[in-house]
Simulated scan of single mutants.
Amino acid sequence: MALSPYGPHGPLIGKVGKLVSYVLKGRVVTRSLGPKRTKHSKKQLANYQAMAVTMRLLSNMTTFINSSFEIEARGTFKNQHNLATSYNKKQALKGEYPNISVDYSKVVLSYGRLKVAENLKMVKTGTGLQISWDTRGGQVNDMAMILVHHPVDAESGDHLNACRRDAGTHFIPLDEERLKQQLEVYICFKSADGKQISNSVYLGNLNGETDSPEVQKEKEKYVVLKKRFDQVSAEYFRMMELRLTASIDNKAFRTLEKEYKVLAEKLKYMPGKPG
């Protein structure tokens, strides 16, 4: 159902037939709905998973990207989330369907012409992260923006106004538990007047990569299904050998054959397969 918030002669907002209309940055956008599909190609499934992985990554970085992509979004009909999604879906993913994941070293959190600091360094201490850089270049009052991402908990720590460029260093306190987890850290610089921003820089990973609870569940499900497939497969091929010398085409065999094919198809596109 669509609404008419602009009066009887204004545009409709919502769904009418196969059209959906909504307001984006003051402009009414209308799109057609594609046909519903019951079966998707591998390419479509890969695209769906790539989008899901990207959305999951950015969902807890909203505060940061709303600030870091705000300059690029100005004067366009795109918003900050659109830009972040476009960049990272194209550049920050690795692997093939059904095991697409994030390449944290290629995550993009800002694009701009402001000078990035040189000699960026990150050191883990007993109480947090010490980040430092060369103060030469850029303006002394440029602001450092730092993001500490915690993939296991799907959380991010935003430090939008960490300190001025001329400070040359910034300390981020973290508790002992956080310091043991996988950490992915990024930095960029924004001008004091908010008109320019630098490219984001990946400061690095700490403590290696750890599977998230979601990925762990996917792997557990894969193991269970693979175990069942191996059992069914062994029985299926045993029966197939018997068919060479005897006529076997009863209901039990047809049921076994159907289960074998269903399980084989599921395993082909099921995430969680060991690399």
Results as ranks from 00 to 15, higher is better:
Met270His: 00
Ser200Trp: 01
Asn47Glu: 13
Phe253Tyr: 02
Thr63Tyr: 09
Ala92Pro: 04
Asp249Arg: 11
Met240Gln: 13
Glu259Lys: 01
Pro5Asn: 01
Lys15Phe: 01
Ala46Asn: 10
Thr125Ser: 10
Val148Pro: 01
Ser86His: 10
Arg165Gln: 00
Gln49Trp: 08
Asn60Ser: 15
Val148Asp: 02
Met143Gly: 07
Val107Thr: 09
Leu225His: 00
Ser59Lys: 00
Glu184Asp: 06
Val28Ala: 12
Gly275His: 13
Glu257Lys: 02
His81Phe: 15
Val148Lys: 07
Val223Asp: 14
Asp153Ala: 14
Phe253Ile: 06
Asp166Lys: 07
Lys180Thr: 02
Phe189Met: 10
His170Asn: 00
Lys266Arg: 09
Val148Ile: 09
Ile172Pro: 05
Arg243Thr: 08
Phe64Cys: 09
Lys43Asn: 07
Thr169His: 08
Glu96Leu: 14
Leu3Ala: 11
Glu220Asp: 03
Leu206Met: 09
Pro98Glu: 09
Lys217Glu: 15
Lys94Gln: 15
Glu214Asn: 04
Val29Met: 09
Ile172Lys: 00
Ala234Gln: 11
Tyr104Thr: 00
Val148Ser: 02
Tyr186Asp: 00
Met55His: 14
Gly275Ile: 10
Asn161Thr: 13
Lys258Val: 07
Asn119Cys: 12
Asn79Ile: 06
Tyr222Ala: 01
Ala246Arg: 09
Arg31Met: 14
Gly126Trp: 04
Thr135Ala: 08
Glu214Met: 05
Thr30Glu: 12
Asp175Asn: 04
Lys180Cys: 05
Lys258Ile: 01
Glu177Gly: 06
Glu220Ile: 14
Gly275Ala: 15
Gly208Pro: 03
Arg164Leu: 14
Glu218Ile: 04
Glu177Ser: 06
His170Lys: 11
Leu33Glu: 11
Asp142His: 07
Lys25Pro: 00
Gln139Arg: 15
Gln216Tyr: 02
Ile146Phe: 08
Val232Arg: 03
Asn99Thr: 08
His159Ser: 11
Pro274Trp: 02
Ser156Gly: 05
Gly26Trp: 03
Ile187Met: 03
Asn199Thr: 04
Ser32Met: 12
Ser110Cys: 05
Met145Asn: 07
Ala117Ser: 15
Arg56Lys: 11
Gly75Ala: 04
Gln181Ile: 03
Asp134Cys: 02
Leu183Gly: 12
Asn47Ala: 06
Pro11Tyr: 07
Val148His: 04
Val262Ala: 12
Gly157Tyr: 12
Gly128Met: 01
Glu259Ala: 03
Met122Ala: 07
Met1Tyr: 10
Leu147His: 04
Tyr186Thr: 00
Val29Ile: 10
Ile71Ala: 09
His159Trp: 12
Pro98Asn: 04
Glu214Ile: 06
Leu206Gly: 04
Ile248Trp: 02
Met1Lys: 14
Gly126Thr: 13
Phe229Val: 03
Val116Ile: 15
Asp103Trp: 11
Ile146Gln: 11
Ala50Met: 13
Lys89Leu: 06
Met61Glu: 10
Val28Pro: 02
Ile248Cys: 03
Val107Phe: 12
Gly26Arg: 03
Val16Ala: 03
Trp133Glu: 08
